[in-house]
Amino acid sequence: MKKLIIAALTLLPSLVMAAGPSVALDKANYDLRDQASLQNGAKLFMNYCAGCHNTQYQRYNRVAEDLGIPEDIMQANLNFTGAPIGELMRSAIPEKDAANWFGAPPPDLTLVARVRGADWLYTYLRSFYKDDSRPFGVNNLVFPSVGMPHVLEPLQGSARLETVTRMVDGHEVDTPVGIKADGNGEMAADEYDHAVLDIVNFLVYSGEPIKLERQRLGYWVLGFLAIFFVFAYLLKKEYWRDVH
């Protein structure tokens, strides 16, 4: 519990300024019961995100067991640091170097879905656009002045910000209305959206791996309480029968 609190406090300073302008968030229709989605999300996350970001409150063997991935496949294809299967999932990038390159160490993402929400993550990962004024040549509609590169650009391709011109107080103002990919990525637009949803699904799982089990046990507890209530009510009637 102490480590989870520390992780949340670590994330908050990095994300508190991420609200950005008033951007409508797209609905992330993730499904924690979709094992194929979780496996693909884990694969994409480890290949494109884990080079910089930790999920250091997860362990390789726990993820492998929960997602139905054989441990040998996990070690061979999703563990790029050579850590033992029982180790925490840390990135290979030294924190000091990351701070020098990006201005601050990339935040741990174990709890990011719980801190920001699945809809925010889903919209954020689909809102990068080309901006030559930024250090990495991209900006983000949800998180303006973002300090990270668009690591999924090979999949999505280059994207540009679409705007409309409106009159505000007698002046023409360009207002952002969305992002348009140029179609030069490895995936079509709908394929990229699905890939992002898989990553979000994996991060939602990472934030609370026991969520489905907790919900399952909750139904049993409610059922027990309902049955207990019946017996308690009958006992009460029997106990007070002679009193009344």
Rank of each mutant, 00 (worst) to 15 (best):
I93W: 06
A42L: 13
K43C: 06
F45V: 09
Y60Q: 06
R62E: 12
I73K: 13
E71T: 15
E87N: 15
F45D: 03
G68A: 09
N61I: 07
A92S: 13
C52E: 01
C49T: 09
I85K: 11
D72V: 15
M89G: 04
P84Q: 01
L67R: 08
S91W: 03
G86S: 03
F80R: 14
Q56V: 08
I93K: 11
E65N: 10
P84S: 00
V63Y: 01
L38T: 05
C49F: 13
R90G: 01
G41V: 11
R62W: 01
G68I: 07
I69S: 08
Y48C: 05
Y57N: 14
M46E: 08
G41R: 11
A50V: 01
N40M: 13
Y57S: 12
A92G: 15
T55V: 15
L44P: 00
M74H: 06
N54Y: 01
A83S: 09
N40L: 15
M89A: 01
L78H: 14
M74Q: 04
P70C: 06
N40W: 12
E87S: 15
A76F: 04
C52P: 10
A42C: 14
I85C: 05
H53K: 02
Y60K: 04
G41K: 12
L67T: 07
F80C: 03
Q39W: 07
K43Y: 11
N79L: 02
C52T: 10
Y48V: 07
L78A: 04
E95Q: 15
P70Y: 08
M89D: 00
I73F: 13
D66I: 09
N61F: 08
I85Y: 11
G68R: 11
Y48S: 09
A83L: 02
P84I: 02
V63F: 04
